[in-house]
Design a binder for these strands. Structure first.
Lengths: 343, 343
DNA sequence: GTGAAAGCGCTAACAC
DNA sequence: GTGTTAGCGCTTTCAC
């Protein structure tokens, strides 16, 4: 290894290793000024950094958190949504001297109730959880008494600290937007049960709108759904066709492509509103108008809360409170895929 | 914590903790069958998993690698290219019982020669390095005698194990493709110095093609470059305009958007070939033809090589050899943005 | 087969 | 101020 240990360093400096340890940890006045600087000089010279495993064992904390993504594909982090969350959390960890273990965790592994080694072996002090989280999974996780914060999973609110988008707010804003552009016939695509419920609750306030909910419960691809929708669109009498569609950005683009093949144009024939402001939305032609969560900000907030819990600044219920009081981080990006229609 | 330790477990089972340790590590015949099963039952019952820090200290290996991205933005992993590499590496780690520490490392931090804690504190057994790697950085990194494998950084070949795309091969295939579609006037966008050199070398074999190299040395955004190119395109006499442009996929899409605003269509007026097969290329309209590296595969290969080094199956030079002999993982995705023109 | 004992490198409580 | 001491939880010889 060639790496120098504290003991050796202390011997070189002619001090006890406990003194050297205190110097390494920047404790106030652990020794005479002269000795301190001697030790510091040696540390600098040898590029000494405490061995993380030894320090973890002695301190009983790892200065490390996990970022656990529960996805049904090994390509979970390739999804820009999760990648951005990770980036946000990573930035906070870096700023506060924490390490971040990334783990993409297959849904299926849950059936064994086989939690990731990271958690079981306590190699993280806490973790951030995101992706699809089932209740069974949550129970298993919770039984481990490791602090964690979730991102997404609106329904968990109240029992765990969770930073998530508020589908009630989102659906209201979307419907208001539709109305402001004079749209009446709307297709609203949502995958979450709660999102659907929140939408349905909103509908009472929008009796002038005819909203059809496109539930995508099974994991059909965006393309497949787009094809189905296009077929239906074409079969419908023109007066019955939606003039506005809301859905995931990839779905919107896939739909625009399919419709285009049938001769229908966006935004002339149909307005499309995406729910993720990502590279695709930004560069698609026409640029996709979106209402989107700020995912990296969400990752950041989650990490900040988690680290505050770890440092004892926040207890469980305070963390829950903080997660609930976070101001909504969603934002609109108005681009060219939506337009007002004549009344 | 509530977590049970080996010592306690051994006491419960009425055996020495060294025996329990052997059972936990699955050593052959560490004790009588009866004792073994007694210990195993207890371990199962308590959900015992060795404490990772203690095990790391005793074994002097962490079963953990780092995935270091050197980027000039904290949003590095939001780039689909790097996210996919990470996914590939993650999958391998998972399969082989390793943990993966993700770290996005700002270029600027290099100036202090301040290496990430992960490396300095030896909290990883080795790491995968990707993104922009300067020579100074590489020297600093190398001096730490931790095994690592790089992804990208063609010029590093020979001195470190690096999995990278071969710009010589890519440029040849691109030019051949242009020729096969009867294109003569080509804009070829590349950011890397070596990529440019390799392209220039190829040009000798393609005297019939008029290739202009668009060097993007400064970090101008894809949009900015697209605007500049569009201006030039419009100013050029029609007979001088390129009929084929090769570049990063976002750039291609941005260019298509700009050109479209000026009334020029893809692929009717211009063929566009992207260098990354990502979500944008797939869903853009028209679908972007791409020649792309398989990034997740690259991440996978890098991790496999690194883990082989860590387990002693490969030494440094064998790893280099293996990285060089990897069959090219790039592939074409033919979509609608390119077309043959009349001669 | 089994267990005693040393040690991994560091931290922290407590004397001096 | 400084050093002594006792761990942290586990692995790994090495006797028995």
């Amino acid at each position: 290894m060639g790496r120098i240990t504290l003991k050796e360093l202390a011997a070189l400096a002619g001090v006890d290793k406990s003194v050297a340890s205190k110097v390494a940890n920047g404790l106030s006045a652990p020794a005479s000024a002269e000795k301190i600087s001697r030790v510091q000089a040696l540390m600098h010279e040898h590029g000494y950094v405490p061995l993380s495993a030894a320090r973890s064992l002695a301190r009983r904390r790892n200065q490390r958190i996990g970022f656990l993504l529960s996805a049904n594909t090994s390509l979970g982090f390739a999804n820009e949504v999760y990648a951005r969350m990770l980036c946000g959390s990573l930035a906070v960890c870096q700023a506060q001297g924490y390490q971040c273990l990334a783990d993409s965790w297959d849904f299926l592994r849950l059936t064994d109730l086989q939690l990731p080694e990271n958690i079981l072996g306590r190699s993280v002090d806490g973790f951030i959880l995101t992706g699809g989280v089932s209740d069974a999974m949550l129970d298993a996780i919770r039984s481990f008494a490791l602090p964690f914060v979730a991102i997404s999973g609106e329904r968990l609110r109240g029992s765990v600290p969770v930073f998530s988008w508020d589908t009630a707010v989102i659906s209201r804003e979307v419907l208001e937007y539709c109305r402001s552009l004079n749209h009446r016939r709307i297709w609203y695509c949502t995958t979450q049960r709660l999102g659907r419920e929140n939408l349905e609750r909103q509908l009472a306030s929008f009796p002038d709108l005819r909203v059809e909910i496109l539930s995508r419960t099974d994991p059909t691809s965006a393309e497949a759904l787009a094809k189905t929708c296009t077929r239906r669109y074409c079969q419908l009498p023109p007066a019955e066709r939606p003039t506005f569609v809301f859905g995931a950005s990839v779905f919107c683009c896939a739909l625009a492509n399919e419709l285009s093949a049938q001769g229908y144009r966006c935004p002339q024939d149909i307005s499309l509103l995406g729910s993720h402001d990502n590279t695709l939305a930004q560069y698609y032609h026409p640029g996709l108008t979106t209402i989107s969560e700020n995912y990296s900000r969400l990752g950041q907030l989650a990490a900040e809360t988690l680290l505050a819990m770890l440092s004892g600044k926040l207890n469980h219920s305070q963390a829950i409170q903080q997660s609930q009081s976070h101001t909504n981080t969603h934002y609109w990006s108005f681009r060219a895929s939506t337009r007002a229609i004549d009344v």
